[in-house]
Structure formats: C-alpha cells, structure tokens
Nucleic acid binder design. Structure first.
Lengths: 181, 181
DNA sequence: CTTCTGAGTTCGATCTACGAACCTAGATGA
DNA sequence: TCATCTAGGTTCGTAGATCGAACTCAGAAG
C-alpha cells in the first residue's frame, strides 16, 4: 500500500498580518492514528534527542574526547554528562577507551563509532539552520570548508538519480502510517 | 584568525575488543574554554532541541496542522504540546492561523513559516540515520522519494564548488572558538 | 606523606514532564 | 430551551530530570 502524500504542500496564504486563512486548508477527517507515529526520526531522537547529547557529539566530532573537556565545552552538569555519555556508548554512538600518554597514567576518552560519525549531517543541518536564522551580528561563530577546495560546506537533499532537490515540495512520502489531518 | 582543525581526525585503532588505544591520541592541554562553546548547533537546539519539538515539526511538515491531530500523531502530553507550539510560534518556525471550513466554526491551525520549512534537512538527516541504524526488521517505516523521478531522497554534504563530500574527514573547521582537548 | 588531577558521585533545590480530568465557546440536535 | 459534541486548550498532583556546588577516589608527582 502506498500513501503518496506530498510533503509540505499548501503553504498558500501565509503572508498577511492578522494571520487568517480564507480558504479551508484542512479537510475534516477523524484521526486515523490510535498510536503515536513511529518513524526513524522519533527513533533517532530517542538516542540523540535528549538535552546535551548532540552537543556532546559535536565536541567529540571536533576531537574533544575527555570528560572534563567535554564538560567545559558543552556546559552540561557533570552528573548529566556522565549519564549522556553512558547512554551514547550504550547506543553505539560513542565508545569509551583507555589511552595512556608516555609517562602518564591511564585515562579514558570517548570516540565516535562509525555510527556516530554518520550523525555529521544532523549536526551540519542544525548548524546550517542556526547560521541562517539565529546567527548574531558578526555572522556564524565558525565556518566549515571542503578541505580539498576550500569552498564552504553545506548539506542538501539529493535523490539517488543524482538530482539536487531545492524545494521540499519535490519530495513525496511513500508508505508508512497514514497522515491524519 | 583561523584554526584549521581537521574534523573527525584520528579514528585509528577503533577496532579491537577490550577497547584500548595504544598510541596517545589527545595531547595534554589546559582547557582554553572558560565558557561553553556557542555555536549555531547550540543555538538551533535552543529552538528545536526540546523534547517533542522536532516531532511536532515533522507532523506539520506532513500537513498535520490541528492541535488534536498533532497530539495524536506525536503522543506529546497536551500541556507540553501547548507550550512547544507556542515556543515554535515565538521562534518563527510555525505560525498559528485561523481557518474556517464552509458551514463550520473558526478553528486554529499551525503552519510552517519559511524558516520552519528550512528545517527539512534536519529531519531528513535524523530520519536517514534512524533508518540506517535503528530500523526494525521490516525496514524503514516510511520512505521518501523525488517527486520528479521516483528515486529515494537523502541528504549529503556538498561544497559550494559542487563537490560531493563522502567523508567527514574532508571537512575543515575554519575560525570559531578553539577546540580544546 | 601531601598535593594534584581526571573522572566521576552525591546532594538538596528546582524545574519539567506526565496522564487524567476539567473547562470553554461555538455548532448541532431534540 | 436545554443537553450534547468538538476543538483547543488548562489545571492538578505526582514522578522524574536537571541544576550547581561540594565531595570522593585512585594514580602520579613532588
């Protein structure tokens, strides 16, 4: 079965001031969902959606790997950080390994697993949105460039046939639980 | 000033079982951050990082716009949903507009603003990660395709010179607060 | 033997989330 | 006229999460 529900259709009329839609936009229908929708977005948020989780991953991505350094860079309370790190290790996003510098005692550090590394587009997408909509007067606090050519990096939708998708209206949803109005 | 810190370097040695790094990977240095790092990721998470926020945006993206329908689809407690919707409206991600169906009373609905629509890559990146790492036995609960050609849609890093970036090691960080170890 | 440091724990005070029940105004029906 | 239904919230008491500050503990250095 296939519900081909156009994502993000019908944004007409979103201009005026005392915002009032003049045309009926939402057909009346009983809710078909008796359970909350389960989707990969929800599942992913169970892993990385808690407060501090993505900031921790941001730091580890930057190469900040020790507890105290992650704590300082994120500002997370230590007890919460302990819990988040343990959760991310349990989820397979980070791994906790010992390391020893010459002439120093054994310490712990946290590293991204391959699965953790694949969260990079999530961070990039958030950063891109924040840069665009929440940056201060002096522009984005940091910029990211392609090491090969020096050009700025961004994330974008593409299809597997190689088309770049500029507008979310070009994306269709196939299968999955019904969309209710 | 430019710190050109390679993102995601040094993943060597992340293979063995009783995970122990044999080489020193983290040069000892005092933390240079006296304040938590401010970046666009953190700023974006202040807007969409609370529990339920992104699921609400997911639903509105699907065209689910009424309070009760969003509540049913996300499973968020009503009081929390009220607060999230108000926060997202305040942040300029959603707008709350009245609409009237023929012969029916006035109702409210929530719509994405242009800024809200630009969160689509965040949702897609989360979905993609969840599909890859958390999908159940029967595969992803929903799939998304390019309306033009029918091919599956994904998000990826590209640079503005047009290169597709397959590996996060190809991304450099320029400027911004120092990375501490 | 004392101090230092990294990596957490513990603690009491908030803060937030939770589910269930309740409220209100417009439409509908008897 | 009166009761009922519905959409879109509020209210409430409880339970769990978060906060910052202080404390702990083990290994290394002096």
């Amino acid at each position: 079965m296939t519900w081909n529900t156009s994502v993000d259709q019908a944004e007409r009329g979103s201009a005026g001031a005392p915002t009032t839609a003049t045309a009926p936009t939402t057909p009346t229908a009983p809710s078909l969902l008796t359970q909350p929708r389960v989707c990969s977005v929800a599942r992913a948020l169970e892993v990385v959606g808690e407060r501090w989780s993505l900031l921790v991953i941001r730091e580890v991505t930057f190469g900040v790997r020790r507890f105290d350094a992650i704590q300082a860079a994120t500002g997370a309370p230590r007890a919460v950080l302990t819990e988040r790190l343990a959760g991310l290790v349990r989820a397979g996003v980070l791994e906790r390994v010992t390391y020893r510098e010459a002439g120093s005692r054994t310490r712990w550090e946290y590293r991204l697993t391959p699965a953790g590394r694949e969260l990079a587009p999530v961070l990039s997408a958030l950063r891109q949105w924040g840069d665009r909509h929440l940056a201060g007067e002096d522009g984005p606090p940091a910029t990211f460039t392609h090491a090969g050519c020096g050009a700025p990096v961004r994330v974008q939708h593409v299809c597997e046939a190689g088309h770049v998708i500029e507008n979310t209206r070009e994306i269709s949803r196939k299968a999955g639980p019904p969309v209710t109005s």
